[in-house]
Design a protein around this nucleic acid. Structure first.
Length: 422
DNA sequence: TCTGGGGTCCTAGGACCC
DNA sequence: TCTGGGGTCCTAGGACCC
């Protein structure tokens, strides 16, 4: 029998902040989204105060003040680095590990098949991760990934579980699934949850016993897969070597409305640069791209405009200058005067391995020269900090975002290393 | 006044081909 | 006036995840 363990970091972003700032221990913390807009992570104490995931900061201001909630801007450089350390630690315990999956920032599946003393082993993993990285994790153990997710929830909630819960026992599965709300199952979202409830399926045990044909007509093959997984039949295998990405998006909301094409162009050029960097980092090239722009949907009293445009490129590329040329034209094509824009973004799609592209018969650009130039730019920005060298099209002021309460990038920036005083 | 960003997979339906 | 059938590929949109 297969045995999966799901290792999930507790309140990951909040825990990361605590690693370098122990004064935050035991205090309610929220970490904010881009522009300091919404709460995207909360410590246990903040959750207990009733702060919901995604709550706009201005709506929770009274709770924040009343309970002295520590409010922090997001610091993804720090979280990404600590995530990598957690994953590296987990990899010490088994070669069968799924990292870099789309859920990778704070969780990883491990294949523990064939091991005995599962709970002891999991405790050892938990202790080691905490000791080596400072991040507390919870571990759920079960014969399928979906059940391991359920087990992980219990590991987090039950005080007596002490961070580890083993759900391999069939009788225990029945008991636990009966207490799990149907929308708390991995893969069942709000929509499906509501639909299931109208058919009197409100917990995971009822879903487990639902009719297969009926589920497939209602929820499609994904839903059916979930039901089988709940029954202990593994449908989702461990992807130890996940497929390459299909798309790379960079988009941001503005901290204030933007009306001029010039500003939008500068923003789009900035996002294009970032997306192209990601592409080169993954050694990929894009054969197509989409650019979109939108007004503020929360301001329905103002005129609304959303548009996007798709562009196929003659030759796959990851050259920033070339891509900015295309995205700049694209944004101009969908821009309409007289709107207050809130957000714009760039998606690079149809990604192919950079060394395997189909050249164009009438090619005029010198690909080798462009590749070398990009390499130099990437190296300079890596060594001297992001944005040290940039394309003029990205503009001189890059002040769309707001991050007023960001903690230092303790582990990824020389100037911001923590200092230990004797 | 202030409301995130970046992904995946599946399905339906259109375009196109023979 | 009559106007096939089956297959593939692609995209948009929905649902979901963290």
């Amino acid at each position: 029998m297969k045995i999966y363990a799901l290792v999930d970091c507790n309140n990951f972003y909040a825990s990361c902040e605590r690693v370098f700032n122990p004064k935050l221990e035991g205090k309610p913390i929220v970490v904010l989204s881009n522009n300091d807009g919404c709460a995207i992570a909360r410590s246990q104490e903040a959750k207990a105060l009733g702060i919901e995931m995604g709550a706009p900061l201005f709506q929770i201001q009274s709770i924040v003040q009343c309970h002295q909630v520590r409010v922090l801007s997001s610091n993804f450089a720090l979280y990404g680095d600590l995530s990598a350390r957690v994953m590296a630690t987990l990899a010490q315990f088994t070669p069968e590990i799924e990292i870099y999956s789309i859920y990778s920032i704070d969780e990883a599946f491990l294949d523990l098949s064939g091991l005995t003393q599962l709970v002891d082993y999991a405790r050892q993993i938990r202790t080691t991760v905490k000791q080596w990285t400072g991040i507390p994790v919870s571990i759920g153990i079960a014969p399928t990934k979906t059940l391991a997710k359920v087990a992980n929830r219990i590991a987090k909630r039950r005080v007596d579980a002490n961070g580890v819960f083993d759900l391999t026992d069939k009788t225990l599965q029945e008991e636990v699934l009966a207490q799990t709300a149907v929308e708390d199952i991995w893969g069942i979202g709000r929509k499906s949850g509501r639909r299931l409830r109208t058919h009197c399926i409100s917990n995971a045990l009822q879903l487990r016993h639902a009719n297969e044909q009926w589920i497939q007509t209602q929820l499609g093959v994904m839903g059916l897969r979930t039901v089988l997984e709940l029954r202990g039949i593994s449908c989702l295998s461990l992807q130890s070597c996940p497929a390459a990405k299909h798309a790379r998006t960079v988009s941001r909301s503005f901290s204030r409305p933007v009306e001029s094409l010039a500003e939008l162009k500068a923003a789009v050029a900035t996002y294009t640069s970032r997306a192209a960097e990601k592409l080169r980092c993954d050694r990929l090239s894009a054969k197509a791209l989409t650019v979109f722009l939108m007004t503020d949907r929360f301001h329905q009293d103002e005129p609304q405009h959303f548009d996007s445009t798709y562009v196929e490129l003659p030759v796959a590329t990851s050259d920033t200058a070339e891509l900015i040329g295309y995205t700049s034209q694209a944004i101009a094509a969908i821009y309409r005067e007289g709107y207050r824009y809130k957000k714009t973004g760039v998606t690079l799609t149809h990604l192919v391995a950079a060394n395997l592209f189909q050249a164009c018969l009438f090619e005029t650009t010198d690909r080798e020269r462009s590749r070398k130039l990009m390499q130099v730019i990437d190296r300079i920005n890596q060594q001297l900090g992001a944005g040290t060298i940039a394309f003029a099209a990205t503009g001189l002021r890059q002040s769309w975002g707001r991050k007023e309460m960001r903690s230092p990038r303790y582990t990824t920036c020389w100037q911001e290393l923590p200092v230990v005083k004797a």
